[in-house]
Computed example of a mutant assay.
Amino acid sequence: MALSYTELNDLSGKILKASYEVHTALGPGLLESAYKECLFYKLFQSGIIAEKEKPMPLIFEEVKLECGYRIDILVESQIVLEIKSVEAISDIHRAQVLTYMRLGKYKLGYLMNFNTVSLKEGIKRFVL
Results as ranks from 00 to 15, higher is better:
E61N: 14
A50N: 13
M56T: 08
L74R: 10
A18W: 03
I15G: 04
F44C: 11
R70K: 15
E37C: 03
I59S: 13
G29D: 05
V63I: 14
L39N: 05
Y20G: 00
E21M: 02
E87A: 05
G29S: 01
V22M: 04
L16Q: 00
S19E: 02
V63Q: 12
V63H: 07
R70E: 13
L43C: 08
H23N: 02
R70M: 10
G47R: 08
P57L: 06
K17L: 03
L58P: 01
E61I: 08
E87V: 00
I83L: 14
L31I: 09
A18H: 04
A34S: 14
P28I: 00
K52H: 11
V63A: 09
L65G: 01
Y20K: 00
I73P: 07
L81M: 11
K54S: 13
L16P: 00
E32I: 09
I83A: 09
K17G: 00
D72G: 09
L81Y: 10
I49R: 13
A50C: 15
L26H: 04
R70P: 06
K64T: 15
L16N: 00
I71L: 15
I73V: 14
E66H: 13
L26K: 03
K14A: 01
N9Y: 00
L11Q: 02
I79L: 09
E66N: 14
L16D: 00
L26T: 02
C67T: 14
V22H: 03
E32W: 10
E66Y: 13
S33V: 14
S19D: 02
L31M: 13
A34K: 11
G47C: 10
A25Y: 03
Y35C: 08
M56A: 15
H23Q: 01
L74D: 06
V63M: 09
I71N: 10
I48H: 08
A88I: 04
L16Y: 05
P57Y: 12
D10Q: 07
Y35M: 07
L30E: 07
G29E: 04
V22Y: 03
I59F: 06
Y20L: 05
R70I: 11
L30F: 15
P57C: 08
K14S: 04
P28T: 00
S77Y: 14
Y35D: 10
K17N: 01
K64W: 03
V22S: 03
L65E: 04
L26W: 04
I79A: 05
I83M: 13
K42R: 15
L8K: 14
A34N: 06
K17H: 03
H23Y: 01
V63S: 05
L31P: 02
S33C: 12
M56E: 12
L58R: 02
V80K: 09
S19Q: 02
P57W: 11
E61L: 12
L16G: 00
E21A: 06
Y69S: 07
Y69G: 02
L39V: 06
